[in-house]
Nucleic acid binder design. Sequence first.
RNA 1: UCCGGCGUAGCUCAACCGGCAGAGCGGGUGGCUGUUAACCACUAGGCUGGGGGUUCGAGUCCCUCCGCCGGAGCCA
Length: 432
Amino acid sequence: MRWVYVEELKKYVGEEVELRGWVRRKRSSGKIAFIDFRDGTGFVQVVVEKSTVGDEQFLNADKLRLESSVIIRGKVREDERAPGGVEVLATEVHPVQIPQEDFPIQKPDHSIDYLMEHRHLWLRSRRQFHIMRVRDAVIKAIRKFYWERDFVQIDTPIFTGAIGETAGNLFEVDYFDYGKVYLTQTGQLYLEAACMAFGKVYNLGPTFRAEKSKTRRHLIEFWMNEAEVAYYNHEDNMQLQEDLVYYIVQYVLEHAYDDLVAIGRDVSKLEKVQKPFPRMTYTEAVKFLQNRGFDIKWGDDFGGDEETVLAKQFDSPVFITHYPRQAKAFYMQPDPTNPEVVLCDDLLAPEGYGEIIGASQRIHDYDLLVERLKENNLPVEKYDWYLDLRKFGSVPHSGFGLGVERTIAWIAGLEHIREAIPFARTLYRVHP
RNA sequence: UCCGGCGUAGCUCAACCGGCAGAGCGGGUGGCUGUUAACCACUAGGCUGGGGGUUCGAGUCCCUCCGCCGGAGCCA
């Protein structure tokens, strides 16, 4: 008999099939039992009738408990009474393993602490199933986008020396006799090296920030997609970001629409995302906020509340550009028309999900870069290889980093970013 | 790190001004051929997060430690 997955059941109406999976829930009467069955591709109801299967098989069904693993054989049929329109009338029920204790997650009313403590089992629940499929769609979209544009994937290292954006916020690791190394905060500097070799490059991988951040938008370990392109200026860079984010939204709408609906996402909000995305300079944004009564002066960075107010004016993500250079990283190229600001942009997602992209054109002039390193009290000698890039055929280049979980949280409409990653690492949780 | 909150049965929560620790769900037993978080009956289940203090008496008030949650700063 043919082993099939739930997602393809509709092709087998009228046929006998074998299903391999788990019991999500069970309701049983004396002579009929209903099993909510799942196999990782979907959910289907299995009906076990005593009159059809006989006493022995019925007993097999009756002794199943929540999250028992089970192999079921039966006939696929359409039935209006079944959730989803298709159900399986069992002929054989073969338990694989029956738990000896209660499954810890029974009802949808557990505390978040309890659910996170049981994340390894919580992943089996319906809502988490759909969220992870949205995550999968977002990541597939990212890879497909770059693949279609002939970018080269360059995997940047996880262990790095003491360079990156900021000296603090780094996780230290002992590296044999070498001494201390650090978990990566960004692969940008390595991508800058790679773009001078391959032109258009990107990465996708985990990054780590030892920030004691405790908000719905922060993870200690999160995934980032970064891209870097030689000869791209700031404008080219923003165009690429806009194309990518728009592409991701369209891809998810096309390939994970049912998952979005299943978790209650207001899909119309995503359908309103349009190109071109609105743009605002930092200076305009400060004036806008001041007019709304915010206590903010030119030179300050935006907090969560400020970002939310700015982003909520628009249906699409909004670019905030040309920040003061003191507020940004050392490697950003000054604006030739106003050296107090740099050629950078942050992309803020709608609905208060905050910054999903940080981007800039990079300094390509050797002397200027050294000057900026000194200005920021960074150890110039540790940036030896990074400075080399400015010695040998240096060109203007630009790039950005997209926060994958923040993008997922926005697209899926999640209240907290911890549900956007299979096993979240937050300030007070590394288990499981 | 700072500010605030919570911790009572396996889970989610009650318990008035300090006065006998309760319910629903889940578990067990029995019943039920169309259930959707099934339903009905019966049943077992507790060192009220740890330690200390006030009091005739503490789940409740005070101190402290632990755990978690929400927010701030910082960031994607």
